[in-house]
Structures are given as C-alpha cells and as structure tokens.
Amino acid sequence: MSELVKIVEKKPIPSGATMLYGLPDVGLVGLIATSYLISELDSEEIAYMDSDLLPPVVVLHEGLPHAPLRIYGNKNFIAVISELAIPTRALHRVMRKLVDWGQAKKVKMMVSMGGIPIENRQVIAEPKVYGAASTKELLDMLSKKGLSTLNEGYMVGPQALTMRYCAEKKIPAIALLAQSFYNYPDPEAAAMVLKELSKITETKIDVSKLLEKGEEIRLKARDIMKRTQQEMTHMKKSQEYDLPLYV
C-alpha cells in the first residue's frame, strides 16, 4: 500500500538547519511570518507534501501547478508553509510526517510560529510574544532571551502536535506565539514573532516591508482566513480559552 502522506524532495535538503512551521492557524500569524521570511531570505522550494488526505487542490504560480503544502530552504532554514487550511482529520498524519522527515534531515531545532487569540487585540499597539518549549532547558533559554513562557493551559492545532511529537522524539522544539486576532489576518503579530525569531536564531530579519504591506496582506488573506476558521471550528481551537483542571 502506498504511503498516505509523503514528502517529495526536489532539491538536496540541508542538514542541521532550523525547521520553521508556518501553517494556517489563528490570525494566520505563522503563515504570514513564514511566507515573508521565505521571500526575504530568498529561499527556494526544496520539497512538497503529497497526500490523498489533503483536498484535491493545486496552487498555480506563474502558470505552473504547485502543491499547497510546500517546504522551502536555504542552508540555515527549512520552512514549511501551506496555502491550504489543513483538514483536521489529516492533521495528525501530516504533522507526524513533517516531524519524522525533519528528524531524518537532522534539523537542530523546530520552531512553530503562531498566535494566541485575545479578545481585545484591536486596542493593543504592540502584541506580546510568548514562548513554549519541548524541554526545560529550552524553556530556560526562552526566559533568558526575555520571553514570557506558557506554563499552564491547552494548545490546540498544528503547533500542539509538533510540540508533542518533538517531545516524544526528544527533538528540540519551541513555539513563538504572539497575541493576535482569532479570525482576522494579523501581519503585526507576525512581525512581532519574527523579531523574536531573529533574537533567538541570531539572524537579521527586517520586518519593515511586512508592516508596510500589512493592509494589502489583510485584504489578500481573507479567503484563506475564512477556510482556516472552518478548520479551527472543527479542531475545537477555542479550547485554548479553557481553564485547565488541576486538583
């Protein structure tokens, strides 16, 4: 039986890179941040995901078909983006495959970028970024870099699974999550996440163009935001608002 989810490599994959995840989620924070980084770092498509579990969709770019879930890279970064909200029923298999693949490529760390939805986002001028990590050492590293960390509560969605599988396999993994809108695209939150990524990875990332293009991105991201919202309803993303029970 053929593999349900496979990653097709188009170019040699760098070894020892940092693997970034920018999958559609609250405020499309991770997707906007990662897409911007891909264009800023001038990286090229090195692989894509092929799976019968994903909807029958191709994305046309300059007239040619591409898989919606693609992996870009240069020698320091491997970045995963998806121009398609990943169906909840496929999410476990997709994330497990990505983590396994990253491990096989000996990535040094996995970084999920995303948002933490807050209700009064429109009155916050500068969204705060929180960190989460798969190990105590990484949590300490985030604190030393000046980040507040998530200590209790629920994580739901792609970054939750990345964190779980990485902890299982002892792969260093962190999540950088900015306060964001739940269901409106949030380029400012994406810029804040990139600023923190820049500090942690000691890579220069200029977010000024991202902030300049903010309104245009919000207009263009309406449709994928709407479809992502449907999937967030399916996966019960709102559970992140829940208060956990510890007796």
Binding site: F181, N183, Y184, P185, G214, E215, E216, R218, L219, R222, M225, K226
Partner: peptide, 21 residues
C-alpha cells in the same frame, strides 16, 4: 467582502469587521 464576525453576549450583540484599506 470583508471578514466579519458576530458574537452574542448576555447583554449585547457585538459585530466586528476587518476593514483593511
């Protein structure tokens, strides 16, 4: 069509819309 959401609270109905540009 801008993105728009409707929330119902015990006292109010709150409608928000993202109006870029």
């Amino acid at each position: 069509e801008p993105l728009c959401n409707v929330f119902v609270t015990p006292d109010e109905v709150v409608i928000t819309a993202d109006l870029p540009n």
